[in-house]
Simulated assay, not measured.
Amino acid sequence: MIDSRPKLNVMEIRRLVEATDEDDRATAAHKLCRTMVTATLTAKEREAAQDVLRLLAADTAEMVRRAMVVTLKSSPLLPRDVARRLAADVDTIALPLLEASPAFTDEDLIEILRASSVVRQIAIAARPQVSSQVAEIIAFEGTEPVVRTLAANDNADIAPISLGAILDRFGGSREVATALAYRAVLPLDISERLIGLVSAQVRDHLIARHAVAPETMIRLAGHAGERATVDLLDQARTAGDLAEFAARLNARGALNASLLLRALATGVMPFVEHGLAELAGTPHHRAWLMVHDAGPLGLRALYDRAGLPPRLFAAFRAGVDTWRGLQAEGAPFDPATFQQRMLERFLTQRPHASRDDLGYLMERLDRTEPALTRRSAA
């Protein structure tokens, strides 16, 4: 059978050794290295090829060394000693290797990090794979541009202690915090620290992508300036276990009449049911019956057992009746449209709610209407 594998070309090697013209040597080096990349080499051929690479690495012409590096920057064929030698070369040669070559050990990369320029450190931080050991050195010792590059590299294995160090050192940098926030995986404590450091858009991504504890949401929702973005009701709509969510809110003293009334007025009825059940110490199925199927006195009995203020019961009654009326219409409302209808009808009844609660609900209505208008116009 004929062997069709690419083979090292003796003529190209001889041309490389004997040529005096730099362009000729660079062309020969490029062709030879391409052959090495595609060839299936025996152990003896591999050893011979690496000897040729050592010869190329010692060439006085930058063009020759660069021809080799560009072709073999990601190849396992490049020997470690050659890679280390070229890592000390000029940037046009060193950077492609530092960005991609598998020839370096972690020890090599750490040594280079501590002895090289920022641009070379950035190249290492952006590698296709960065070990936790290398990432730790960058996190604890790197400058902001290098750390930002590491944070944005999802293929970097950044241990929790290193993530914490990054936030300790550069938490005030919006760019670093944002890069961390968009990582595919984040520990819960890091996500919660980031919540207060990033923009509203990035914060929404954090909340949607990473599990954020209700305790954090409670703390943030207490600040009026952040209520529009970090809203406990938005969390309630997506919570996987509403019973647990309500229990945790109650343990922190955040499950109250104001929150439940807001949930009711915006149509988040399952959360209202679980919230009342939690406050009343009643199983959810029983609370559901008292809200929906126990006649006019069922809701009142559950409300009183939950210990909610008597002055707000009329507003709760209006909210439940409004919700039932919309359900009875049977229209196929999407969630946003249903929320708008709930808010409109609830607010037109002039419910006896606090000024803060009414202001919040009007704000929700203001945010819902433009979104629906844009959707209908699209």
Rank of each mutant, 00 (worst) to 15 (best):
R5K: 08
M11Y: 15
D21G: 05
R25W: 09
R25F: 08
A28L: 10
H30C: 06
L32I: 10
M36L: 07
A39H: 01
K44D: 14
A57S: 15
T60E: 15
V64I: 11
S74P: 01
P79I: 06
L86V: 10
L86Q: 10
D89P: 05
T92V: 14
L98P: 08
D108S: 06
E111K: 07
L113H: 02
R114C: 09
S117G: 04
R127L: 02
Q129H: 15
V130C: 02
Q133P: 00
V134D: 05
I137Y: 06
A156P: 12
D157M: 03
I161K: 14
A165I: 07
F170E: 01
T178G: 04
T178V: 12
A179P: 11
V198C: 11
Q201C: 00
Q201K: 10
H205S: 06
A208H: 13
A211M: 05
I218W: 04
R219Q: 13
A221G: 12
A224L: 08
E226Y: 12
L233E: 00
L233Q: 01
A243F: 01
E244I: 13
R252P: 00
G253E: 14
G253H: 12
L255H: 09
L259W: 10
L261N: 07
A263S: 13
L297S: 13
Y303R: 02
P310K: 06
P310M: 01
R311L: 05
R317A: 00
W323T: 05
Q327A: 09
Q327E: 14
G330M: 03
P335Q: 02
T337D: 03
E344L: 03
D357Q: 08
L358H: 11
R367L: 11
R367V: 02
P370R: 02
A371N: 09
S376T: 12
